[in-house]
Design a protein around this nucleic acid. Structure first.
Lengths: 185, 185
DNA sequence: GCTAGCATGTAAACGGTTACATGATTAG
DNA sequence: CTAATCATGTAACCGTTTACATGCTAGC
């Protein structure tokens, strides 16, 4: 038994996703990924370079050295066919956490358009919408989720208020976009 | 040179925070933390138990064994004075990422009330508000952040739309709460 | 003369995920 | 009788963080 559960590896997905748009060197990737992760949370070199190395070893990307404008020579990275296939696979078969977790889902959303397959894209949005419809609260007492007004702490109430507004706008967008996608077919 | 940068260790903060409210055993903590992390993302045992062990070794909490209702005997965990001091320190001196990063900030927000110090609490909210006011975009072209209408990809536009709605509601709440805190003084 | 930006990497330490291991009680 | 919930832990693996290491160019 015991089937292998894949790791999420968001960084890998982001690298594949951006390289699919155009070849790029590591330093450039860094900027793109930093922007992605929300508000400029830098990717550390110690995460990025080993990740690239792993992908190169796995044959998902190739590296071509060109003289650097400025400092060290750049290594321009390009996806191989295997890399493009892996990206498509990751986008088509997301893990449950990638639907559930905000950050993961947004990374998926960033690149899902690369599939150029409205039906598949709609499937992802529908999964997210279903997840959001089964709402989840943040705080518990006696094992039961607390409603906002039952929480004495103003900061926790605030968190729920913001989460609620976010959920609402996300649901709206998901519904609109699903309608658009259906209409375009 | 090279001063030591502390790790974020969100899990540690959450453990200290919840134990500060009342003594609890690990399994109970698990439920609380899972709710916290957004929509029920379970904490794995392999993360939780070692984290507790580290805190116990560091003298931040003590464990008392009581016969378990159900299965294994429970280990009821309580904060020591050092544990409470560490929690206060973490809340009072947050890292920059803990202001910047959504999830980190929300964990901070969950427990900041424990300080019972409106001025200090307001300081945290003000820092977050300042961060949000220096807005950040998600996508770049030629090194410059793209405005929503300049993005062709509907999914990326959607992400910005949701992020914008979230930012707006968070700003509103922060301003209101800062006013409340100021008025109460 | 110095700092920021460009550009690439490595190594130790740490912590989280996954899977393994065990076992009792309760609800369907 | 079987799955879910309660309850605690360990160990291998792997990826991230932090810090170390190097060096050039442009602007102040």
């Amino acid at each position: 038994m015991a089937y292998r559960k894949e790791k999420i590896a968001l960084l890998t997905l982001a690298i594949l996703g951006f390289l699919n748009e155009r070849p790029m060197h590591a330093y450039e990737l860094k900027g793109h990924i930093a922007g992605l992760t929300g508000h400029v949370r830098p990717v550390s070199d110690g995460a990025l370079y080993p990740a690239i190395k792993r992908l190169r070893t796995a044959g998902l990307l190739t590296s071509e050295t060109v003289p650097g404008s400025g400092a060290a020579p750049k290594h321009v990275l390009s996806l191989t066919d295997a890399g493009r296939a892996e990206l498509a696979r990751r986008l088509r078969e997301p893990q449950e956490v990638e639907i559930t977790d905000r950050n993961s889902f947004y990374v998926l959303l960033t690149f899902i358009g690369a599939l150029h397959d409205p039906a598949e894209e709609a499937r992802l949005l529908r999964r997210r919408l279903e997840f959001l419809d089964g709402a989840a609260s943040y705080f518990y007492r006696d094992g039961k989720p607390l409603r906002s007004k039952d929480i004495e702490d103003r900061y926790r109430r605030g968190m729920l208020r913001i989460a609620s507004a976010t959920r609402k706008s996300e649901r709206e967008w998901l519904r609109e976009t699903l309608d658009d996608l259906a209409a375009a077919e």
